[in-house]
Write a protein that binds this DNA or RNA. Structure first.
Lengths: 339, 339
DNA sequence: CTGAAAGCGCTTACAG
DNA sequence: CTGAAAGCGCTTACAG
C-alpha cells in the first residue's frame, strides 16, 4: 500500500494491458474479454483502486450527484430544523442511493445569497429545493434558476408557469379532510393558525380547503379567528395565546403545521383548558413527534418517503429529458387524541 | 446564454487575456493586475461562470468535500432515523459550510458493505462516521479504513489504539450525574435499560458512571434490573414491560437513550403507574422530542451543535496534518418533569 | 477484442 | 504582471 492512490495506469501495468482496456473492463464493457476483465478486477481490488470521480465526471460531463438545498427560515431557531424536512432529508438520501446518485446537502439561510452554484460548478446534475420562507421572494430566485437553465425540482411551492417542476402534497384536500372530520365531530367553532395568504401558498391551500368545506356545510371561520404564525412551536404558542386572549367561542383549532399545533397545545394547557375536551387541535405534516405529544396529535400525514422518491424521480426524469411523472401526493388524516 | 456552460477560455476570449490569467484572477491571486481582475469578474458574472469543480478538484487533488456516513441499525424502523443523529446532521452541515466544505451525505445499512469509497474515489477528502450498531463488528471495519489510510473521524465509538480519531460525549460523567441526581432525590431503587456491555460502549460507559456512583453511595443496581434494549422507542417499551413484569421494587429507571426512555414512559403509563410519582425516568441525548413528552423528559444533554463542530474541526485538522484538538464533550443534566 | 491518442477544464511551475 | 504549456485521471471515438 503506497501512500498515493492507484490509478488505472497502475492496474494496466500489473495486468499487462493498456489503460484503455482497464477503463473498459472496470465499466464492464461487453467489448472486453472475460479473462481480462477478471484479472483487472482482481488487481483493482488488491490495490484498493476506485475510479477517480473527479476525472470521470470531468470527462463525462456529469456528476451522478444531486444537491439538496434546505432553506431555513431566518426567524427560526438556529439549532432547530423543521423535523418534517429532516425526515424528508432521510427519504431523499435513500431515494438517491437507490438510483445510484450521491447527495450533497446544504443548508441555506433565506436571507443570504443562495449557494445554488452546485449545478453551475458541475458538482451536481440537479437540485432539490426544500423550504422557501416567503413565497413571493422565492419566485424571483426560482426565475434565476430557470434562466440559468438549472435543473431543479422543488417541494411545496408552485413554480410560476412550470408546475411540472414541483412536487407537493394536495394541501387543499388535506384541509378538506380536517374540516369534514371536525364537522362530523360537531366541532365547528374553528380557528386557524398559520399564514393564510399567498406568502405561504401551502398553508393557504390548507386553509382554503378547510374553509371551503366549512362553507359547504353552511359554516365559516371568523376572520378574527385566523391568526398568523410561522412554522415553529414558539410562533404557534404565541399565536394561540393571542387567540385565547380574544375570548372567542372556540372549540377547535386547525394549525397549519404540527410545530404550530404543538405550540398551540402548550398555550391551551397553560390557559387551564383541556385538549381535546375544551378545544380540539389538529396539525399538519405528521412529524415523528406527533405521536408523542400529550395528547397525541391528530394531524394530516404527508408521506415523506413517498415525497422523497417523487422528488428524486422527477429530477432524474428531467435529467433524462423525460416527462416527469405525477406531481401530487395525497395526504391522509391521522386521528389520534388531540381531536 | 448559450446552452453549454462557459469555461475559463470563454472568459479569456472576452477579456482579451490568457486563460491562465483568468484562472489566477478568479482565485484572487495577488499576481494579477486589479484592472484585469475586475474585468474578469465582470465577464464571469455576466456569463454566469462557475469554476468546474471536477476539473479543479482533479487538478488540485482535493475536493473540499466531506462525506458523512450515517449507519443505521438494521433492526430499526426503515423510515425512522434516530433524531439525535438527525440533529447532528444539521450541525455538521452547518459546521462544514462555515469551513467552506461541501457535505456528501449517505445512509448506510449496517448489514451491507460500507460505501466508504468516497475518499478513495476522490469525492471527499475525509469521512465522518455516525452510528455504528455493534461495536465489535464496527472495529473491523474501522481497521480497514485505517489500513487504506482513509482520513476519518467517528462519533461515539473509540477507535482501537487511535483515540484521537473519535469524538465523544463523556458518557461516564453523564451516568455519574444521573446517579447523583437520583440519590439526592432518594430514588435509589434503580433499573437500567439499554445494552450494558462492550457491544455498546457508549451505553456501557453511561451505565458504569451510573453504577460506580451508586456504589460510592453504598448502593447498587440489581443485575435483574438491567434489561437489554437497542435505541428505539419500541425496544425501550418492550424492555420496560419485561422489567415491570418482574415486580421488582423499583422507583427509578435510567434509560440509555431518550428513545428508550420514551418507550419506557409509555410502558409505565400502560401499567397504570405514574411518572415520576411511582417511577422516575431519565434518558440520555436530549433529542428535540424530549421536551414534548408527557411528562417532559429529564435527560442528559449532549450538545449536537458543539459535537458537529468538533467532528468537522477534528477531520480538518487531520487533513492539514495538525494534531486534533479536544475530543471529549461534557454533557449536562437537564432536569424536566420525568424525574 | 485491444491500443494509441485526444480531450474534459482546470491550476501552476516555468519563462519572460 | 502575463502567457504557453504540462498534466491531474479518466472515457471513448478511431484504427486495427
Amino acid at each position: 500500500m503506497s501512500k498515493s492512490k492507484a490509478t488505472s495506469f497502475d492496474i494496466a501495468h500489473y495486468a499487462g494491458v493498456s489503460q484503455s482496456t482497464v477503463s473498459r473492463a472496470l465499466r464492464n464493457s461487453p467489448l472486453v474479454n472475460e479473462e481480462t476483465k477478471k484479472k483487472v478486477f482482481e488487481i483493482a481490488k488488491k490495490l484498493n483502486y476506485k475510479v477517480d470521480k473527479n476525472a470521470s465526471n470531468l470527462r463525462t460531463q456529469q456528476s451522478n450527484t444531486i444537491a439538496l438545498l434546505l432553506f431555513e427560515d431566518p426567524t427560526s431557531d438556529e439549532s432547530m430544523i423543521n423535523p418534517f424536512f429532516l425526515s424528508m432529508l432521510g427519504s431523499i438520501t435513500r431515494a438517491c442511493a437507490n438510483q445510484g446518485y450521491d447527495l450533497l446537502v446544504s443548508f441555506q439561510q433565506m436571507d443570504q445569497d443562495w449557494q445554488a452554484q452546485y449545478e453551475d460548478s458541475h458538482r451536481a446534475d440537479g437540485l432539490i429545493l426544500l423550504g422557501y420562507g416567503d413565497y413571493i421572494d422565492y419566485q424571483a430566485r426560482l426565475a434565476t434558476l430557470l434562466q440559468n437553465n438549472t435543473k431543479f425540482v422543488c417541494w411545496g411551492a408552485r413554480v410560476e408557469s412550470r408546475p411540472e417542476l414541483s412536487i407537493s402534497c394536495d394541501n387543499y384536500f388535506g384541509g378538506e379532510q380536517v374540516a369534514e372530520f371536525l364537522v362530523a365531530k360537531k366541532r365547528t367553532q374553528c380557528a386557524f393558525i398559520g399564514d393564510a395568504s399567498e406568502h405561504s401558498p401551502e398553508f393557504f391551500a390548507r386553509f382554503n380547503g378547510f374553509k371551503d368545506t366549512l362553507n359547504k356545510h353552511g359554516l365559516d371561520v371568523d376572520a378574527r379567528q385566523i391568526i398568523n404564525a410561522i412554522s415553529t412551536d414558539e410562533s404557534g404558542y404565541n399565536a394561540t395565546k393571542t387567540l385565547l386572549s380574544l375570548k372567542r367561542p372556540i372549540n377547535a383549532i386547525f394549525a397549519a403545521s404540527d410545530l404550530i399545533a404543538i405550540g398551540a397545545i402548550r398555550a391551551i394547557k397553560e390557559a387551564g383548558l383541556n385538549v381535546p375536551e375544551d378545544i380540539s387541535v389538529i396539525g399538519f405534516d405528521d412529524i415523528p413527534v406527533a405521536s408523542f405529544t400529550e395528547p397525541a396529535l391528530t394531524t394530516v400525514n404527508q408521506s415523506t418517503s413517498v415525497a422523497g422518491e417523487m422528488l428524486v424521480a422527477n429530477l432524474l426524469a428531467q435529467l433524462k429529458d423525460e416527462p416527469p411523472a405525477q406531481t401530487q401526493l395525497k395526504p391522509t388524516l391521522v386521528v389520534r387524541h388531540s381531536a
